[in-house]
Design a protein around this nucleic acid. Sequence first.
DNA 1: TATGCACCCTGTAGCAACTACAGGGTCAAG
DNA 2: CTTGACCCTGTAGTTGCTACAGGGTGCATA
Lengths: 136, 136
Amino acid sequence: MKIGELSRATGTNIETIRYYERIGLLPAPDRTAANYRSYGDAHRSRLSFVRHSRDLGFTIEEIRSLLDLSDDPARDCGEADRIATAHLEQVEAKIAQLTLLRDELARIVGRCRGGVAADCRVIEALGDHRHCESAH
Amino acid sequence: MKIGELSRATGTNIETIRYYERIGLLPAPDRTAANYRSYGDAHRSRLSFVRHSRDLGFTIEEIRSLLDLSDDPARDCGEADRIATAHLEQVEAKIAQLTLLRDELARIVGRCRGGVAADCRVIEALGDHRHCESAH
DNA sequence: TATGCACCCTGTAGCAACTACAGGGTCAAG
DNA sequence: CTTGACCCTGTAGTTGCTACAGGGTGCATA
């Protein structure tokens, strides 16, 4: 299949597919006589793996490691689990941080009573960290 | 005060302070005879405002608008409230998205039972979106 | 046959918000 | 007089794409 078809099949931007090839995340496919990229099923499933992992928030480097693992079926699974577990912990940390931040923002927004900027509680709160109830 | 002192006073990297000046977020300060930047209290509180807003996740452009507002005390406060409210909504959306993602990751990680990569449930789940329970 | 249109190619530059040098100058203490 | 901490400018790197510019290919239609 040509790149546009692969793009539709995986929901990946064409430019992104070429980018993945450039950074070595996807192998360079064969070319047609007209120098068009020609993909097979192996490419499609590899790209799906990459997209899915990206959707789950894995970095390109993490995905590289995961792909290395899946390319070598005899290797130990522990490494994949370590990567995924570490990533899960990062996501949980991010959620916790954003939750604090949301609470702080909600408090700031809730204080606006209209009027002019000189009296604006939003601007005042942004200027002075001491108005905050939690660290962030 | 010199840039190092301002850096310590506000918890901002020196390079970041210079970067903010370059993009026009902070006004260029006076210089000493040795061409060192020399800051006053107004700079310090403006930078605190910026840092605090960045910590709360506002973009540089949002902060630019908020600073414009606070520089003009006669202007209406509604704009500040609009910016903050929109940002709060974005943070809430991000939390919701990360929460879905965390649940999916937790399910994937929980399936690892050791062994070799060929049998790895983590790698299998990443390759095939149909294993997922929710959209992400 | 011409021409329009969708599709493909390469290469480079842009985005956000910094961060990290390289290569130099300044200044006070010992 | 030298050591070390500090400061300066300018440029390039980071992450993960995305957006051109400027060109070639392939097929259907007038």
